[in-house]
Design a protein around this nucleic acid. Structure first.
Lengths: 222, 222, 222, 222
DNA sequence: GATGAATGAGCTTTCATTCAT
DNA sequence: TATGAATGAAAGCTCATTCAT
């Protein structure tokens, strides 16, 4: 899965070179990193398939080829594991999105691109969308973690930055960029949620276009 | 709670007159309605206090003074009960909101009023907000997928209507009113969610103002 | 097992006559009593065989032919179940002991008889002895319940009564009967414990005789 | 705690002199002894604070500044460690008690003194009492069965010796001293146990006096 | 000898839902 | 219709012990 590139990458990036260079102390750390990655990768797959509640630690452990207890040497509990996994995935997605956004020059076009690519990604990844939009609410202490996802702030910042650029270059009026970021975020999430609720049947294209229209209309300079 | 007036009202509105008119068959139906209302009222209180997961059918049955099994004669399961209760509450709120919106004349002011009153209501009702914004996601999606909250559509329609009026009277441009309704809804929900996530500590006033600014700016006619 | 007579008896004592007399209401109560007894009997066997810790609720439920959860309709938790079972058994033993003690006339002989019969019983019932003397300490909240076994006080009272009789009839001096009861109890328990610790190998006869000698010597009137 | 003097002492008594004298082979042995003592001291504190069950090997290892696995180089398992620790503590207490008993001349007074000082000690050391009287029963019996606490025999011997002296000097009749020792032991233990069960609330003074009265009455010569 | 990461067995309790009465 | 006793599935997490390094 492309959006997991970072995770897999982290596993993969320990190449032969690394092994040679590593001191005995580093090797230990390598082993730990390797196990941790196995767990994260396995958890990602299991969570995506079954959702948070229905995923059992045993299943994850089995897939990661470690003992159940081992998971608790790396993560405080199931919830923390979920959050870490989700956060890493979200970061990967942002990296991906950025790759596409940076190819566009016009500041407003960048925002449009961001908006489109994200929604596109979610609609292309059923199970991940469900995990990131719905399952996250099943994490009991979610109340405190959900907005605590480090990646969440990266997203907001990213949009904010796009806005600042657009403002500086005179493309949009001097809005509160943070509020606008939140609006974009909430609209994207809501569109995806409606789509999930419809059992992935509705076509999001029209809705997303119309919403975007109002969003942009609300910030451009005349 | 005044916003629950409808629920209680439904219990109350079977007055003496009704009783006289009722045939023996109707009386049965009356009994059923009365029991159903007892269950709904009890469930409302229990759900608000403990949230969806932590509320047990036993507790609701006890409070409604019926047997556990009886609840299943009126509702398919715990989830359906929750949805029904939530839906009735949401309807009541809309009635309330409408009472305040209709006192305003200017079509745009009406939208502003709607937006403000709803947010105000949620921030004044911690436990209800949590139930309607967060708990609702703990209900197995299936139920929401197929039906959705009926009241949800009433809300969307309500905003749509306000928009249509505003369009007709030339106050705002010809936007897609449904999309705008969804946007308003998603933004309100998101603002409340952030507030809940912050443990009811952040002040929503600034954020809600800035978001509203962009929303309105996105639809007005220059 | 004879010492379980009461338990089985309670199951058995609902004979045909009872059934006829029972109103529908009583039948319910009968059903409940019957189930409760099945659980108690099953638990008694399982606890005796495996001890408290190693006995699982599932095993007891299976043997009692009820669902796991059913046990919790009758007992708060595993510990309460253990205590109830142990207490009933202890009562049965006391009944048995009494049957033998009452055949003796001399007040001091009664005390000797009591002492002997109890130790005899324990040494004839390995597994029960272990349960009553050792396992009881594995009940976590044992600290509060252990002396709270209703049967415990019956034992103390029983010995006290024997003493009072002996005092009244001038056979022993005016000692504090409660203290003496506790001493008898503690000595019996300790002798049994030593015997259990020795893996049931040592012969308790000599020790019990010598201890009894000092106990009696300490209370008789010269 | 003064009664742990022996344990600490064993750590401390390897002074500079020892180090000089030790051959390389002895130094190894010294190192082992030192580590063993660190473990014992740490375990003593942890066990006293948390009880047997709730004390984890990790916690002990951490406090002793060794690795978890290291503990298993010195002790077969957690239970053996507990027994060793408890045994050493019990020995220390006996040393202490002896210091006070030897100041008394009259053989019977010695026995009284022993009885009083031990109970006094336990009631002044909540956590130790719990450990020695209750926790010890949570250790799988196997360990106690075969060996028993070595210090246990020292206690019995000690009382036996006091008795022998008293018999020789004609203060008490010719009882079986071992049985009497066991009785004293069992009564002390029981009194303390009742006190622990009462959550350290009951006053043991009256009970202990009355029990002692019967004990002594049972052995004195008229 | 020392380390400490890894193991993996083990089990109570809750509660939505059913169904005999 | 109403009852409420009975069902039984379901799974997180700990921690004593081992063993490769």
């Amino acid at each position: 899965m492309s959006h997991c590139a970072r995770i897999n990458c982290r596993v993969a990036k320990f190449n032969v070179m690394d092994k040679i260079i590593m001191s005995s102390e580093k090797q230990l750390s390598f082993k730990r990193t390797e196990v941790r990655n196995r767990i994260i990768t396995a958890a990602g797959e299991v969570f995506k398939t079954n959702g948070f509640q229905a995923s059992s630690i045993s299943a994850i452990a089995k897939k990661a080829k470690v003992a159940d207890g081992t998971i608790y040497l790396y993560f405080k509990n199931k919830e923390e594991l979920f959050i870490v996994v989700l956060d890493l995935m979200m970061e990967d997605i942002l990296d991906n999105v950025h790759d596409q956004v940076k190819r566009v020059d016009n500041p407003i076009e960048k925002i449009l691109k961001f908006y489109d690519v994200i929604i596109e990604f979610f609609t292309n990844n059923h199970s991940f969308a469900k995990m990131a939009i719905l399952e996250v609410n099943q994490v009991k202490k979610g109340i405190l973690v959900s907005t605590g996802l480090p990646s969440y702030y990266k997203y907001l910042n990213y949009i904010s930055n796009l806005c600042h650029q657009a403002i500086r270059k005179g493309f949009i009026r001097e809005i509160d960029t943070e509020s606008f970021s939140i609006m974009v975020f909430s609209c994207i999430e809501y569109i995806i949620r409606l789509w999930i609720y419809s059992d992935y049947k509705t076509d999001t294209h029209k809705l997303r276009k119309k919403v975007l229209n109002i969003l942009i209309y609300g910030i451009i300079r005349y």
